[in-house]
Nucleic acid binder design. Sequence first.
DNA 1: ACCTGAACACCGTTCAAGT
DNA 2: ACCTGAACACCGTTCAAGT
Lengths: 226, 226
Amino acid sequence: MGRRSLSRPEIVTAALRYVDQHGLEALSMRALAKEIGVYPTALYWHIGTKAQLVGAVTATVLDDIVLPADHELRWDEWLVEVARLCRQAMHRHPNLSPVIGSQLVVTTAALPLVERVLNVLERAGFTGRDLVDVYNAVAGFILGWVSLELASGPLDVEDDWQEEYAGQLRSVNPNAYPAMTRNMDLLAGNAFMTRWESGRVRPMDRSFEASLELLILGLRVKQERV
Amino acid sequence: MGRRSLSRPEIVTAALRYVDQHGLEALSMRALAKEIGVYPTALYWHIGTKAQLVGAVTATVLDDIVLPADHELRWDEWLVEVARLCRQAMHRHPNLSPVIGSQLVVTTAALPLVERVLNVLERAGFTGRDLVDVYNAVAGFILGWVSLELASGPLDVEDDWQEEYAGQLRSVNPNAYPAMTRNMDLLAGNAFMTRWESGRVRPMDRSFEASLELLILGLRVKQERV
DNA sequence: ACCTGAACACCGTTCAAGT
DNA sequence: ACCTGAACACCGTTCAAGT
């Protein structure tokens, strides 16, 4: 087939593009190989298994996050900025969010991010176990919240399940669900477990900012106590 | 084969047990059918596609959450309790957490939970858009954080990748990563992106409690402003 | 109504063989 | 060193056929 000089980065780039276009579940070694114009087994020589390929793809997404300088901003402003940047990076490749959200991130590509967040949290006065806890709060919130936001619908179901679920919600028993009924207009389609569209088509900007603000408020209170 | 009276709930129960034992990625219509002692295509008659089966399984997990009575506790105490109960439910079926974390939850089984949380947040004084935002903060934090905690390792990789990653972390350049180096003993294995074991084998109890406390602190501050 | 059995179009991965 | 080509043991799903 005259195909030559297949390289690791070339494969990873092609895989990311493929996932962006066709979804994570459509990614297969065979389909990707066909896209590149090579036999499936050629991929194995360069990147190993599919799991390793996906890991490499994830690393490139983390690598794309450019953090603001540390000392230009107050620690809390810096964290807000970083949270937004991470969210943006995840929104750029929404089909990859299940990997970030539910597989262990084991790549050194994440370490610069970890270092900078730790550094800023130390600057805010957190140390030792408190530092680790507060870091986990920040990282868990950002990565967890956004990957939940980007969750995709149940795949390969009929086309009308969205309208059906919307209908089910709106016709819920007002006696059994008074609080939901009172707030249905704001709730329907806009809140976790009462929506039928992914955050990739209907981003939850306002709620993300509000949630982030709550986290920062909590951090400020905790800081004063330390 | 003399198999009779195959029922929907029977299939769902068997599927949950299968996922608990063998993992989500091992679940296949064919394997489950063999386990039950029936032809794969028989399952389709009762539950439809695999996606629908997984949805039904998820619903049973949410159904298992028994919430405390509303008025026995202060609103903030109640939320802490509910967060712990949800986390426990997810820990009971860790192999299912990718579904909760990265697929839209579209089941009426979630609605009682939504209703009660909304009710308590209204009691705390939140209304309108603020109510929705604060609800999303709580739900997004709990579901997102815990599904991240329960993330599984990259599948079917060699046995020594855990030790290898642990080694990479500890031998990181102290000049490039001073904050990480200073806190390496507490960090390694215990924080998001610097761990190599899932929360199912190494639960992050302390950090969860601390993160939850931060959220509640933030909610209390916001409440005073409303 | 409920299940069988065959069939279709896929998978990931291994391995011997080529160049 | 790098890729081909065949092969193995799987998938989800459809559909005609049985009872």
